[in-house]
C-alpha cells in the first residue's frame, strides 16, 4: 500500500501535485498542496501519486510504501 503526504515545511505552492493527482491532493487557499483524506492511495491512483512525487521541484511530496 502507498500513502501520500505533503511536507508543509518544504511545500511552496508550485501546484504540481494537485495538477497530477487531483484525487489525492487539493490546493489550500494559498495554493499549497493539502492531502485529501488520510493519504491512502487507491491502486488506480498509484501512477498519479508517483508523478506528483516526481514533479515536485521542492521534493515536498512524500510517498510511503507499506
Amino acid at each position: 500500500m502507498v500513502k501520500i503526504a505533503i511536507d508543509s515545511e518544504r511545500c511552496e505552492g508550485h501546484g504540481r501535485c494537485y495538477s497530477l493527482a487531483p484525487k489525492l491532493v487539493e490546493p489550500d487557499d494559498l495554493g499549497n498542496g493539502r492531502v485529501i483524506g488520510d493519504g491512502t492511495v487507491p491502486a488506480d491512483q498509484e501512477d498519479n501519486a508517483r508523478q506528483a512525487e516526481g514533479n515536485c521541484p521542492e521534493r515536498a511530496v512524500l510517498l510511503e510504501e507499506t
Binding site: 511552496e12 505552492g13 508550485h14 501546484g15 508523478q51 516526481g54 514533479n55 521541484p57 521534493r59
Partner: peptide
C-alpha cells in the same frame, strides 16, 4: 517527460506568485 522537477518558477520562498 514524466519526471520533471524543473525550477522555471524558482525554488523556495520566492516561488513565482503568478505561476498558476
Amino acid at each position: 517527460r514524466t519526471d520533471n522537477r524543473h525550477a522555471a518558477f524558482g525554488l523556495g520562498i520566492h516561488r513565482c506568485a503568478g505561476s498558476h
